[in-house]
Design a protein around this nucleic acid. Structure first.
Lengths: 337, 337
DNA sequence: TTGTAGGCGTTATCAT
DNA sequence: ATGATAACGCCTACAA
């Protein structure tokens, strides 16, 4: 590939001059400018970003590591688009590395982006503990932000949605509509999100003096199949319920299908509520009600903070975003209404 | 950050020696090796990949640019996971850049990865023309592969799934089951995939001496809403149909919902077929039949070829993968069976 | 087995 | 307005 030296020779100037016209630093006559541009054109020269970054000690790059488990959801497209767009609006580039399916792989991805000397890092984790991430932030000079987790120590370096509060709010709504026997199909309980949504459910029941019954809780794995299986388990336990909350829309979808299969009508006999508001789910019959997480706002806040820090700013306040309860046909009044 | 020189000083050796123990090239006594490792440990040294790549003229990196429009689909998770995994198995790293929502942005993303000196590039395009990509491959020394397009000139530098053939096959199956009046909701017709699926539909009708009726074709935009709207349009035209093909599962989902809304039963009155086999769609009632594109095989073949080329190999043969027709409850026999 | 020195392609600080 | 030249952090002959 043509280098800056090639261009310089062809234009009959020194490397320094070429560098000047490229970076815009320093004076250079219009005439030589033209010659340089022509030489660039002719030689097909392209700057070597590695060399440039090495010299300037800055890559103008933000690294993003996202757990592979997120790509299934609706959120990823939005997240990545806005992240890339905002980063570029600020004159930088977004680089993405896959967090794959384990803590070790998430760790490696972060380390790689760090070794690549990204100016800043965003982590959308699945397996890494908050303590480890606090540790990572502590031990690196680059600005690092975490999405979807609430950090203990670096509370201004994370943006999260309060899953427990959202779940609490949604279940409270069911109770307000007269439901007392509310079943819950959890997500994987090794996932903080899964744990929090369950906690919100329990809290809402307690708050309303309704006993938490283990027979009404069944563990799923986020997939439609496990949602359907969850319904089977609940029915086998013969613990009657008039409402069913699934920890995400995929499981809610599987659950609805299985209810139909068993001749149980939604929402006439059972109201159903999911999480995440996936595009497809509302097209089920009946349209699924859901709690939507505001990813767009979250990622925008994240990038803003990062850019601010890169410019030398300091954040002290923390920020989180509430989930939005979207009520559709799948919710009706319960027997105690 | 600690540099190699810091480590060298601390260990009481030269930079060269540190480099030797890090790269594994050249002999180093066990004793100094230990000292170096200890110095690395103590200083928290991390190699600067920019400097290393600049010196070795190789980044050990494969760049992937994916159109943002793909993230909605089921395919992305699979694609990225296998791409990252295979790349790492071969001792390299995958870097992803967003192609966003236009040809210009796809172009920029590619150029960026090239400027970053990725050893090879994979393009999963949406807006770039095949001619332009042929051009790009032509004018760069790095191996470049294109997924999901059939290139004209560099036919061995692409891996595609024959959308037209898959569509042809699927529609033929409907005809074989006795359907004659088959409606089609297209995807965006500025998308090659959308165009080809429509072409396959028309070809299958012609092949079976069934007239192509414009009244049975309506254009959608890939979303559930447009699928539902498509059904409305078809019903308004009063062109009766016993089968409906939608160019993807999202539209099929919307279509089924709308059919139900209008009191038309699926599959008793209308058989429905989609494309892409999304995880959620089969959980609709009735379970949606679909044509599944074998992305995993496609990306694996792509990476294989790239690695092979990086090792100096040359490919001459082209390769494509057939879509797989998955028949579920939404398909029944038609009136002419 | 280890050290010296030159080079990778830039930027940036001096002079001129 | 332009040209040397020294970094940037690493690798790699070539010497010793």
């Amino acid at each position: 590939m043509a280098t800056m030296l090639d261009v310089a020779k062809r234009a009959g100037v020194s490397k320094a001059t070429v560098s000047r016209v490229l970076t815009g630093n320093g004076y250079v006559s219009q005439e030589t400018k033209d010659r340089v541009f022509q030489a660039i054109e002719e030689s097909g020269y392209r700057p070597n970003l590695l060399a440039r970054s090495l010299a300037t000690k800055s890559t103008q790059t933000i690294g993003l590591v996202v757990t592979n488990t997120l790509y299934h959801g609706v959120y990823f497209s939005e997240l990545l688009f806005h992240a890339a767009r905002m980063t570029e609006d600020k004159g930088r580039r977004l680089i993405l590395a896959d967090g794959k399916h384990s803590a070790e792989e998430e760790r490696e991805a972060i380390q790689y982006l760090l070794d690549l000397r990204c100016d800043a890092i965003i982590i959308y984790p699945r397996f890494l503990s908050v303590d480890e991430m606090d540790e990572i932030i502590q031990s690196h000079s680059q600005p690092i932000m975490v999405i979807n987790r609430r950090l203990r120590r670096h509370s201004s370096h994370c943006v999260w949605s309060d899953q427990k509060a959202s779940s609490f709010h949604a279940v409270s709504e069911l109770i307000a509509r007269g439901h007392r026997d509310i079943a819950f199909i959890t997500g994987s309980l090794d996932s903080p999100t899964g744990i929090e949504r369950l906690a919100g459910y329990k809290a809402a029941l307690s708050e309303n003096n309704i006993a938490v019954r283990d027979a009404l809780i069944v563990e799923g794995k986020w997939t439609p199949v496990t949602g359907a299986a969850g319904v089977e388990t609940l029915l086998a336990r013969k613990a009657g319920f008039t409402a069913l909350v699934a920890s995400n829309d995929d499981m809610a979808t599987g659950a609805i299908k299985q209810l139909h299969q068993r001749g149980i009508r939604v929402p006439e006999q059972v109201s159903v509520l999911g999480f995440d508001d996936t595009a497809l789910a509302p097209y089920l019959i009946p349209s699924l009600s859901s709690v939507k997480i505001p990813v767009t706002e979250m990622i925008k806040e994240t990038i803003s903070r990062l850019i601010f820090m890169l410019d030398g700013g300091e954040f002290t306040c923390q920020q989180h975003f509430p989930g939005e309860l979207i009520v559709r046909d799948s919710l009706t009044r319960g027997p105690h209404a």
